[in-house]
Each structure stands twice: as structure tokens, then as C-alpha cells.
Nucleic acid binder design. Structure first.
Lengths: 234, 234
DNA sequence: TCCCGTAGACCTACGGTGTAGACACCAGTC
DNA sequence: GACTGGTGTCTACACCGTAGGTCTACGGGA
């Protein structure tokens, strides 16, 4: 009675294409959907449809929708790797920053989750994968000679800046990409001239935003200023 | 037949307590609900209930729910005032930063809206009240001698930092406020010791976070570093 | 005076949502 | 064989955002 399938199909003709459903597969599929259609198009039912399962199956692997979203954020953040043994802490932080930017830009729809979910959960209850970069950066900085308090301070300054920067960068949305005139491209002609003279005058500058170099300039300022604001090390 | 009410009641006995519904009243009520119960407890139907109207009435004053949320964010941001004629631009930016922090802390549930809504809308289509601070700060900085490009750069750096800072500060959630031991207060005892030694060791530092002074230190670094990163003025 | 346009409020209804609760099935272990 | 715990499924409930249509009051020409 059974078809060509391996030992995973229970009885009917191939009900579940790829064997058992795991949390990882569920999260991967959810991430893919979010990347494609944005965060509020993700529904439990839609996700189940994409996986070919019953919607209620998902609740075996996530307590509720919030938990699923936490999982998606954790999946993305897991791409971030920190080397706590790097002896050049400045270089390592720069590397982390660039990595973070790259990850955020490749999952723009997840960014609201990344910056927003921690507001709802006490630190110790957050997904473990979310705390990993924090722990590793603390290790990096204490090995570099900073006190725990200063290390924490630097972590906060760095990620505060990173979150702010990425929110800035993702706001650069062009309204009419095919238009050549910057004012029209950005839709700024809609603003009344006498109320927003400065803003309208900056069309060309707005249009030429360069996120990568903006990040570097910010890092320059931050990393130059940090040691003097703490009891400096090395 | 009519009761004590003023000239606003049409016929039945006092159908609408306070006269006609306006966008301002609707937004004020929405803001109050969000402040009280958080953002995802706000529904059109619930809001209508609180206002004593039919749910569909709200659509006379907001195109849809997203527009309503934009309105709430705009209402909050309207509390922010910038004096573009201040001759001391550094002091003025500091004042704006402190104001922003105060506003954000008094409406913590709106913060996700403040940092997140702009990601969905091109700059020129955002609510006007949202663009006001930008325009005013550009005016302030160009009057101080900065080029338009540098002014925009400084605005971005400031608000990037502010958003990052406030997201940081609002993450400080105490799990068991009545507990005296910091480790238990923050729930850090739940983390495995061998996986998160540094983080667990920082319980006391985490518990004594001071947002106000953190903001000031960040501003010191930022405002000291900015002029050298641009073609400095005054 | 009549007429008409418009703005505000309301009602109904549709197709979606998250998820509680109960039940069926299976693999292992005693 | 009986029991147990993880997994999948089905049904059902309460709620959501909002399209479409209707009723009423009001203001301004004609």
C-alpha cells in the first residue's frame, strides 16, 4: 500500500513531505515568510499552510505567537558571531558592528522585532541565543582589561548606537525609484515650501545616503570617545 | 422632551456625552489606552467602546488602523519642542535630547511606534507633526553655520543615538521588584553559570542602571565627536 | 420654500485571527 | 498487554479590521 517514501510516512500517501516538523524548520519557514511579505502578514494559519500542516501543530513547538516571533528574532541574531578571545577589542567590536549591519540589511522586516521584542521581556527570560552576543562581548572586554561595569557600559553604547543606526538606515525609502529628479524621487514636492524649506532643500543630500560610511563615522566617534569615558584599558 | 444637555444633542437622551467626535479626542483616548494596556491591546472596537461610539465612526477620522497608530505617534512627538533660534546649538540639542527622553519614558508603550513606524512610510508621506522636529533642527544648525549636509548628518546622529538609548533604557525590566538580592531580583539565577559567567556576575551593575546619567555621557561623547567629524562651525 | 450635497454616525456582514480543549495516533518502556 | 508522553488533528469560540449601505441633520443655493 505504501509508496516510494522512506520510513517516515505513517500510513496515507506521503502526508508530510519532509518528515517530522521541528522547531528549526518551523522558524526557518517563518523567517522566510517574514522576509518575503513583512511581519504582520505572518499568521499562524498561513505559516501552517506553508508547512503543509494543521495550524495547531505549531503550538507543539512554540508556546504562542509571541514565542514564535522571539524565535524568529533569535534565529536571525544567531548569525552574529563574536570572538571573545580577540586581543584587539576595538577591531573585534568593529567587526561585530559590520556583521550586525549586514544581517539587519538582509532581513529588514525582522529589525522591528530585534529592537522591540526585548522591551517586553526581562533580560533573564529572553531567548538564550539573544544573550549570547552580550555574554561574549563582556568576556572580550573583561579580557581586554575593562571592569565589568565598564564592559557593560560599552556593550550598551555599541548596541544602542547600532540599533539607532540601522533604524536610520532602513528609513531611507525611495518613493519613485524611476524618477530622476531627487525632489520628485523622494516625494518631497508634496511638502509645503514655506513650512519645510530646509528639508526640501536637502533632496540631493537625502538621496545620496551611504549607510556603510555612516556606520564607520559613527564607530569612529564612539570608539574614540569610549575609552576616555571609562577607566581606559590598553 | 430634551434634557439638561447643551445644543449638541440631536434628539435621544444624551447619546454622546461630550458632543461631536474629533480626531484629537479620538487620538487622545487611543493614547490613554495604549499607555494603560500596551499597543496590541488597542483595537478599533475597543477604542470605539471607550468613546461610546460605533466602531465604524472612527473611520471618519482615520483612514485605517495604521493611520490611527501614526496619529498616536504624532500626538506624542508633538510634545517635543525645538527652538530653531537658539544661538547655542549644543545646548539646544541637549535640551531636545532630555525632552525626548522624558516624553518617551512617560509613554513607554508608544516607543515601539516611534522607532518603528517610519520604517513603513517614505519620509515625505509621514505625518507632518513627525517632520517638524527635523525641519526645526535643520534650521537651528544651518543658522549656526553648518552646511545642509552636515546639519542632516548631525540630526541623524542625534536621533539615532536617542532611539538607541531609549530602547536600551526601556529594556531595564525588573522581574521581582520585592526581592532584595540583585541576582534574584533580575531573575539571573535562571541562567546556567558555566554558560553566562560574566552576565551573572554583573547583577549589581545591571540593577543600578541610571538612564539619565547614561544619556548625558552619551551626549558628551557624541557632541564632542561631531564637530570634528564635520566641517566644524562656531 | 424646496432641493440637494455633504458630513457624521450607525448597522450588518464577511473573511480573517489566535488559541483553548478534546481526541487520535504512535514509539517506547515496564 | 498496559501505560505514558510526545505529536498531529479537528472543532469551536471570541475577537478582529473594515467594505458597503443606510439614516439623519445641516447648510447653502434656487
Amino acid at each position: 500500500m505504501d509508496a516510494t517514501s522512506a520510513d517516515s510516512a505513517p500510513r496515507d500517501g506521503e502526508p508530510h513531505p519532509g518528515g517530522k516538523l521541528t522547531r528549526e524548520r518551523m522558524l526557518a519557514c517563518a523567517l522566510e515568510m517574514v522576509d518575503r511579505e513583512g511581519i504582520d502578514k505572518l499568521s499562524m494559519r498561513g505559516l501552517a499552510r506553508a508547512l503543509g500542516r494543521d495550524p495547531m501543530s505549531l503550538y507543539r513547538h512554540a508556546a504562542n505567537k509571541a514565542d514564535l516571533l522571539d524565535g524568529v528574532a533569535e534565529t536571525v541574531l544567531a548569525e552574529l558571531t563574536v570572538d571573545p578571545n580577540d586581543t584587539d577589542w576595538v577591531a573585534q567590536l568593529r567587526a561585530v558592528a559590520r556583521q550586525f549591519r549586514r544581517i539587519a540589511l538582509s532581513h529588514p522586516h525582522v529589525v522591528p522585532l530585534l529592537v522591540t521584542r526585548p522591551l517586553a521581556t526581562p533580560l533573564a527570560l529572553r531567548p538564550r541565543g539573544t544573550l549570547r552576543p552580550l555574554e561574549d562581548i563582556l568576556a572580550l572586554l573583561t579580557q581586554a582589561g575593562f571592569s565589568g561595569a565598564d564592559a557593560l557600559h560599552i556593550y550598551r553604547a555599541l548596541f544602542g548606537f547600532l540599533h539607532g543606526h540601522i533604524l536610520n538606515e532602513l528609513q531611507e525609502i525611495v518613493e519613485n525609484p524611476e524618477e530622476t529628479d531627487d525632489l520628485l524621487r523622494l516625494g518631497l514636492h508634496r511638502l509645503p515650501i514655506h513650512e519645510f524649506p530646509n528639508l526640501r532643500g536637502l533632496a540631493s543630500v537625502l538621496a545620496s545616503y551611504d549607510g556603510a560610511s555612516e556606520l564607520e563615522r559613527g564607530l569612529d566617534i564612539l570608539l574614540a570617545g569610549l575609552p576616555t569615558a571609562t577607566t581606559s584599558a590598553t
